[in-house]
Amino acid sequence: MASQPPPIGARQSPLYRAFGDRIFLAALLLFGLIVIGIVILMGWQLAAGGSQAFAQFGLLGFLGGVTWDPVADIYGAWPFIIGTLITSLAAIVLAFFPAIAVAIYAVEYAPRWLGSILQYALELLAALPSVIYGLWGLLVLAPILRSQQQSIVTWALENQQDWLLAILGPPIGFGMTTAVIVLAVMVIPYAASLAKDSIALVPGAQREAAYALGATKWEVIKNAVLPYAKGGILAGIILGFTRALGETMAVVMVIGNNNNLPFTLFGSATTIPASIINEFGEAMDLKLSALLALGFVLFIMSGLMNLLAAWIVKRMSVEGRL
Protein backbone atom coordinates (compact mmCIF):
# COMPACT_ATOMS: atom_id res chain seq x y z
CA MET A 1 0.00 0.00 0.00
CA ALA A 2 2.94 2.32 0.59
CA SER A 3 3.62 2.48 -3.14
CA GLN A 4 0.22 4.05 -3.83
CA PRO A 5 0.46 7.75 -4.80
CA PRO A 6 -0.80 10.14 -2.17
CA PRO A 7 -4.28 11.51 -2.85
CA ILE A 8 -4.45 14.88 -4.50
CA GLY A 9 -4.30 17.65 -1.99
CA ALA A 10 -2.55 15.59 0.66
CA ARG A 11 0.53 17.74 0.33
CA GLN A 12 -1.39 20.89 1.06
CA SER A 13 -1.32 21.88 4.65
CA PRO A 14 -4.72 21.99 6.37
CA LEU A 15 -3.95 25.60 7.18
CA TYR A 16 -3.59 26.45 3.47
CA ARG A 17 -6.83 24.70 2.64
CA ALA A 18 -8.81 26.39 5.35
CA PHE A 19 -7.35 29.75 4.37
CA GLY A 20 -8.00 29.10 0.69
CA ASP A 21 -11.65 28.38 1.33
CA ARG A 22 -11.99 31.28 3.68
CA ILE A 23 -10.35 33.79 1.35
CA PHE A 24 -12.42 32.56 -1.57
CA LEU A 25 -15.69 32.85 0.32
CA ALA A 26 -14.66 36.23 1.70
CA ALA A 27 -14.00 37.50 -1.82
CA LEU A 28 -17.38 36.25 -3.03
CA LEU A 29 -19.06 37.81 -0.02
CA LEU A 30 -17.32 41.10 -0.66
CA PHE A 31 -18.65 41.21 -4.22
CA GLY A 32 -22.09 40.11 -3.07
CA LEU A 33 -22.13 42.87 -0.49
CA ILE A 34 -21.09 45.38 -3.14
CA VAL A 35 -24.16 44.40 -5.19
CA ILE A 36 -26.38 44.91 -2.17
CA GLY A 37 -24.49 48.09 -1.36
CA ILE A 38 -25.18 49.51 -4.83
CA VAL A 39 -28.93 49.44 -4.24
CA ILE A 40 -28.60 50.95 -0.79
CA LEU A 41 -26.28 53.58 -2.22
CA MET A 42 -28.78 54.37 -4.96
CA GLY A 43 -31.55 54.92 -2.48
CA TRP A 44 -29.33 56.88 -0.14
CA GLN A 45 -27.80 59.15 -2.79
CA LEU A 46 -31.14 59.97 -4.34
CA ALA A 47 -32.69 60.68 -0.94
CA ALA A 48 -29.71 62.73 0.19
CA GLY A 49 -29.57 64.61 -3.11
CA GLY A 50 -33.26 65.31 -2.92
CA SER A 51 -33.23 66.26 0.76
CA GLN A 52 -32.87 69.96 -0.02
CA ALA A 53 -36.06 69.91 -2.07
CA PHE A 54 -37.88 67.78 0.51
CA ALA A 55 -36.77 70.19 3.24
CA GLN A 56 -37.81 73.26 1.26
CA PHE A 57 -41.31 72.12 0.36
CA GLY A 58 -41.95 69.39 2.92
CA LEU A 59 -42.41 65.79 1.87
CA LEU A 60 -46.13 66.11 1.19
CA GLY A 61 -45.71 69.59 -0.19
CA PHE A 62 -43.23 68.30 -2.72
CA LEU A 63 -45.20 65.17 -3.63
CA GLY A 64 -48.51 67.00 -3.85
CA GLY A 65 -47.26 70.27 -5.32
CA VAL A 66 -48.76 70.97 -8.74
CA THR A 67 -46.42 73.78 -9.73
CA TRP A 68 -43.04 73.18 -11.30
CA ASP A 69 -41.62 76.59 -12.02
CA PRO A 70 -37.83 76.84 -12.27
CA VAL A 71 -38.03 80.61 -12.70
CA ALA A 72 -39.78 81.06 -9.37
CA ASP A 73 -37.76 78.15 -7.93
CA ILE A 74 -40.94 76.30 -6.93
CA TYR A 75 -40.97 72.57 -7.45
CA GLY A 76 -43.86 70.17 -7.04
CA ALA A 77 -43.84 66.55 -8.17
CA TRP A 78 -47.54 65.88 -8.62
CA PRO A 79 -47.82 66.41 -12.41
CA PHE A 80 -44.91 64.05 -12.97
CA ILE A 81 -46.21 61.40 -10.60
CA ILE A 82 -49.67 61.46 -12.11
CA GLY A 83 -48.27 61.50 -15.65
CA THR A 84 -46.08 58.51 -14.90
CA LEU A 85 -48.90 56.52 -13.37
CA ILE A 86 -51.42 57.31 -16.11
CA THR A 87 -49.11 56.49 -19.02
CA SER A 88 -47.82 53.30 -17.43
CA LEU A 89 -51.25 52.06 -16.37
CA ALA A 90 -52.78 52.82 -19.75
CA ALA A 91 -49.88 51.11 -21.50
CA ILE A 92 -50.18 47.96 -19.43
CA VAL A 93 -53.95 47.88 -19.89
CA LEU A 94 -53.42 48.06 -23.65
CA ALA A 95 -50.68 45.44 -23.48
CA PHE A 96 -52.41 42.99 -21.15
CA PHE A 97 -54.52 40.84 -23.46
CA PRO A 98 -52.32 40.98 -26.56
CA ALA A 99 -49.26 40.00 -24.50
CA ILE A 100 -51.00 37.02 -22.94
CA ALA A 101 -52.61 36.07 -26.24
CA VAL A 102 -49.35 35.96 -28.13
CA ALA A 103 -47.71 34.01 -25.31
CA ILE A 104 -50.50 31.41 -25.33
CA TYR A 105 -50.52 31.22 -29.10
CA ALA A 106 -46.74 30.84 -29.36
CA VAL A 107 -46.54 28.06 -26.78
CA GLU A 108 -49.82 26.18 -27.19
CA TYR A 109 -51.10 26.63 -30.72
CA ALA A 110 -48.40 27.66 -33.16
CA PRO A 111 -46.72 24.96 -35.23
CA ARG A 112 -43.28 24.28 -33.89
CA TRP A 113 -41.39 26.37 -36.45
CA LEU A 114 -43.68 29.37 -36.02
CA GLY A 115 -43.68 29.01 -32.25
CA SER A 116 -39.93 29.12 -31.97
CA ILE A 117 -39.70 32.05 -34.37
CA LEU A 118 -42.33 33.91 -32.35
CA GLN A 119 -40.64 33.14 -29.06
CA TYR A 120 -37.25 34.24 -30.29
CA ALA A 121 -38.69 37.37 -31.88
CA LEU A 122 -40.38 38.30 -28.59
CA GLU A 123 -37.12 37.88 -26.69
CA LEU A 124 -35.22 39.93 -29.23
CA LEU A 125 -37.82 42.69 -29.24
CA ALA A 126 -37.84 42.74 -25.46
CA ALA A 127 -34.11 43.43 -25.66
CA LEU A 128 -34.43 46.08 -28.38
CA PRO A 129 -33.14 49.40 -26.99
CA SER A 130 -35.90 51.73 -25.89
CA VAL A 131 -34.36 54.63 -27.74
CA ILE A 132 -35.17 52.77 -30.97
CA TYR A 133 -38.83 52.50 -29.98
CA GLY A 134 -38.63 56.21 -29.22
CA LEU A 135 -37.15 56.91 -32.63
CA TRP A 136 -39.98 55.01 -34.31
CA GLY A 137 -42.55 56.79 -32.16
CA LEU A 138 -41.08 60.18 -32.96
CA LEU A 139 -40.52 59.85 -36.69
CA VAL A 140 -43.14 57.30 -37.79
CA LEU A 141 -45.97 56.98 -35.29
CA ALA A 142 -46.38 60.60 -34.18
CA PRO A 143 -46.97 62.00 -37.70
CA ILE A 144 -49.58 59.32 -38.38
CA LEU A 145 -51.31 59.93 -35.06
CA ARG A 146 -51.22 63.67 -35.59
CA SER A 147 -53.30 63.45 -38.76
CA GLN A 148 -55.73 61.02 -37.10
CA GLN A 149 -56.05 63.27 -34.09
CA GLN A 150 -56.59 66.30 -36.28
CA SER A 151 -59.49 64.69 -38.09
CA ILE A 152 -61.08 63.70 -34.78
CA VAL A 153 -60.65 67.20 -33.35
CA THR A 154 -61.99 68.73 -36.56
CA TRP A 155 -65.06 66.56 -36.28
CA ALA A 156 -65.51 67.64 -32.66
CA LEU A 157 -65.14 71.30 -33.64
CA GLU A 158 -67.69 71.02 -36.42
CA ASN A 159 -70.16 69.38 -34.09
CA GLN A 160 -69.35 71.82 -31.31
CA GLN A 161 -68.64 69.09 -28.77
CA ASP A 162 -66.89 71.38 -26.33
CA TRP A 163 -66.65 68.80 -23.56
CA LEU A 164 -65.00 66.40 -25.98
CA LEU A 165 -62.53 69.05 -27.10
CA ALA A 166 -61.55 69.65 -23.49
CA ILE A 167 -60.77 65.98 -23.05
CA LEU A 168 -59.01 65.55 -26.37
CA GLY A 169 -56.65 68.48 -26.13
CA PRO A 170 -54.47 69.84 -28.93
CA PRO A 171 -53.87 67.35 -31.75
CA ILE A 172 -50.11 67.79 -32.06
CA GLY A 173 -49.13 64.14 -32.27
CA PHE A 174 -46.76 64.41 -29.34
CA GLY A 175 -48.45 63.64 -26.09
CA MET A 176 -50.17 61.18 -23.84
CA THR A 177 -51.69 58.97 -26.55
CA THR A 178 -48.47 58.59 -28.50
CA ALA A 179 -46.46 57.86 -25.36
CA VAL A 180 -48.96 55.24 -24.23
CA ILE A 181 -48.91 53.46 -27.58
CA VAL A 182 -45.11 53.46 -27.77
CA LEU A 183 -44.91 52.18 -24.19
CA ALA A 184 -47.44 49.43 -24.91
CA VAL A 185 -45.57 48.33 -28.03
CA MET A 186 -42.37 48.21 -25.92
CA VAL A 187 -43.85 46.47 -22.94
CA ILE A 188 -45.74 43.76 -24.86
CA PRO A 189 -42.71 41.70 -25.92
CA TYR A 190 -41.27 42.02 -22.43
CA ALA A 191 -44.42 40.91 -20.62
CA ALA A 192 -45.19 38.32 -23.30
CA SER A 193 -41.80 36.66 -23.10
CA LEU A 194 -42.11 36.38 -19.31
CA ALA A 195 -45.63 34.97 -19.74
CA LYS A 196 -44.53 32.47 -22.37
CA ASP A 197 -41.73 31.28 -20.09
CA SER A 198 -44.14 30.49 -17.31
CA ILE A 199 -46.64 28.87 -19.71
CA ALA A 200 -43.88 26.72 -21.15
CA LEU A 201 -43.02 25.60 -17.61
CA VAL A 202 -46.46 24.04 -17.09
CA PRO A 203 -45.86 20.29 -17.00
CA GLY A 204 -47.24 18.27 -19.90
CA ALA A 205 -48.90 16.00 -17.35
CA GLN A 206 -51.21 18.87 -16.39
CA ARG A 207 -52.37 19.30 -19.97
CA GLU A 208 -52.81 15.57 -20.41
CA ALA A 209 -54.85 15.35 -17.24
CA ALA A 210 -57.34 17.83 -18.67
CA TYR A 211 -57.35 16.26 -22.12
CA ALA A 212 -58.03 12.86 -20.62
CA LEU A 213 -61.14 14.26 -18.95
CA GLY A 214 -62.48 15.21 -22.35
CA ALA A 215 -61.53 18.87 -22.42
CA THR A 216 -61.24 20.86 -25.62
CA LYS A 217 -57.95 22.59 -26.32
CA TRP A 218 -59.18 25.93 -25.00
CA GLU A 219 -60.57 24.25 -21.89
CA VAL A 220 -57.18 22.65 -21.30
CA ILE A 221 -55.58 26.09 -21.47
CA LYS A 222 -58.23 27.70 -19.31
CA ASN A 223 -58.44 24.99 -16.66
CA ALA A 224 -54.99 23.45 -16.55
CA VAL A 225 -52.42 25.77 -18.12
CA LEU A 226 -53.44 29.28 -17.05
CA PRO A 227 -54.16 28.46 -13.39
CA TYR A 228 -50.76 26.80 -13.16
CA ALA A 229 -48.94 29.67 -14.84
CA LYS A 230 -50.91 32.60 -13.45
CA GLY A 231 -48.29 33.66 -10.90
CA GLY A 232 -45.62 34.00 -13.56
CA ILE A 233 -47.98 35.70 -15.99
CA LEU A 234 -49.15 38.24 -13.43
CA ALA A 235 -45.60 38.93 -12.30
CA GLY A 236 -44.65 39.49 -15.94
CA ILE A 237 -47.45 42.02 -16.30
CA ILE A 238 -46.34 43.84 -13.15
CA LEU A 239 -42.74 43.86 -14.30
CA GLY A 240 -43.97 45.24 -17.61
CA PHE A 241 -45.74 47.99 -15.68
CA THR A 242 -42.56 48.65 -13.72
CA ARG A 243 -40.60 48.89 -16.93
CA ALA A 244 -43.10 51.42 -18.25
CA LEU A 245 -42.77 53.43 -15.01
CA GLY A 246 -39.05 53.83 -15.46
CA GLU A 247 -38.96 54.08 -19.22
CA THR A 248 -37.15 57.23 -20.18
CA MET A 249 -35.99 57.75 -23.74
CA ALA A 250 -38.97 56.31 -25.58
CA VAL A 251 -41.27 58.56 -23.52
CA VAL A 252 -39.28 61.75 -23.52
CA MET A 253 -39.07 61.61 -27.31
CA VAL A 254 -42.82 61.47 -27.90
CA ILE A 255 -44.70 62.86 -24.89
CA GLY A 256 -44.20 66.54 -25.60
CA ASN A 257 -42.89 67.34 -22.11
CA ASN A 258 -45.44 69.65 -20.60
CA ASN A 259 -45.97 69.73 -16.87
CA ASN A 260 -49.02 71.95 -16.73
CA LEU A 261 -52.05 70.08 -15.42
CA PRO A 262 -54.59 69.02 -16.49
CA PHE A 263 -53.29 66.56 -19.04
CA THR A 264 -55.46 65.81 -22.04
CA LEU A 265 -55.82 62.74 -24.20
CA PHE A 266 -53.87 63.98 -27.21
CA GLY A 267 -52.04 66.86 -25.60
CA SER A 268 -48.51 66.85 -24.31
CA ALA A 269 -47.75 65.62 -20.81
CA THR A 270 -44.75 64.39 -18.88
CA THR A 271 -43.48 61.63 -16.60
CA ILE A 272 -40.84 61.50 -13.89
CA PRO A 273 -38.10 59.97 -16.07
CA ALA A 274 -38.94 62.23 -18.99
CA SER A 275 -38.73 65.34 -16.86
CA ILE A 276 -35.44 64.28 -15.27
CA ILE A 277 -33.88 64.03 -18.74
CA ASN A 278 -35.61 67.10 -20.02
CA GLU A 279 -34.88 69.46 -17.15
CA PHE A 280 -31.47 68.10 -16.31
CA GLY A 281 -29.40 70.23 -18.70
CA GLU A 282 -29.53 73.49 -16.81
CA ALA A 283 -30.19 72.10 -13.34
CA MET A 284 -28.40 73.58 -10.35
CA ASP A 285 -28.95 73.81 -6.61
CA LEU A 286 -32.59 73.52 -5.61
CA LYS A 287 -33.71 72.44 -9.07
CA LEU A 288 -31.10 69.68 -9.19
CA SER A 289 -32.17 68.62 -5.73
CA ALA A 290 -35.80 68.54 -6.89
CA LEU A 291 -34.83 66.33 -9.85
CA LEU A 292 -32.94 63.95 -7.56
CA ALA A 293 -35.97 63.95 -5.26
CA LEU A 294 -38.08 62.96 -8.27
CA GLY A 295 -35.57 60.18 -8.87
CA PHE A 296 -36.06 59.06 -5.30
CA VAL A 297 -39.84 58.96 -5.77
CA LEU A 298 -39.33 56.84 -8.89
CA PHE A 299 -36.90 54.63 -6.97
CA ILE A 300 -39.53 53.94 -4.32
CA MET A 301 -42.37 53.39 -6.81
CA SER A 302 -40.36 51.08 -9.01
CA GLY A 303 -38.79 49.26 -6.08
CA LEU A 304 -42.17 48.55 -4.50
CA MET A 305 -43.59 47.21 -7.76
CA ASN A 306 -40.57 44.96 -8.20
CA LEU A 307 -40.95 43.57 -4.71
CA LEU A 308 -44.66 43.06 -5.34
CA ALA A 309 -43.89 41.05 -8.48
CA ALA A 310 -41.36 38.93 -6.60
CA TRP A 311 -43.86 38.34 -3.82
CA ILE A 312 -46.55 37.32 -6.30
CA VAL A 313 -44.26 34.84 -8.00
CA LYS A 314 -43.44 33.33 -4.63
CA ARG A 315 -46.99 33.38 -3.33
CA MET A 316 -48.88 32.29 -6.40
CA SER A 317 -46.50 29.80 -7.90
CA VAL A 318 -47.75 26.25 -7.64
CA GLU A 319 -44.70 25.15 -5.67
CA GLY A 320 -44.99 28.12 -3.33
CA ARG A 321 -48.56 27.48 -2.26
CA LEU A 322 -47.74 24.32 -0.39
Binding site: A209, L213, G214, P227, R321
Partner: peptide
Protein backbone atom coordinates in the same frame (compact mmCIF):
# COMPACT_ATOMS: atom_id res chain seq x y z
CA UNK B 1 -63.83 9.87 -27.07
CA UNK B 2 -61.59 10.96 -24.22
CA UNK B 3 -64.65 11.57 -22.08
CA UNK B 4 -65.71 7.98 -22.66
CA UNK B 5 -62.20 6.58 -22.30
CA UNK B 6 -60.52 8.04 -19.24
CA UNK B 7 -56.87 7.93 -18.36
CA UNK B 8 -54.73 7.77 -15.24
CA UNK B 9 -51.07 8.63 -15.59
CA UNK B 10 -47.77 7.39 -14.32
CA UNK B 11 -47.28 10.21 -11.86
CA UNK B 12 -50.24 11.57 -9.95
CA UNK B 13 -51.16 14.86 -11.65
CA UNK B 14 -53.95 16.54 -9.71
CA UNK B 15 -54.62 20.15 -10.71
CA UNK B 16 -52.47 21.95 -8.15
CA UNK B 17 -54.56 25.10 -7.95
Amino acid sequence: IRRKIGMVFQKPNPFPT
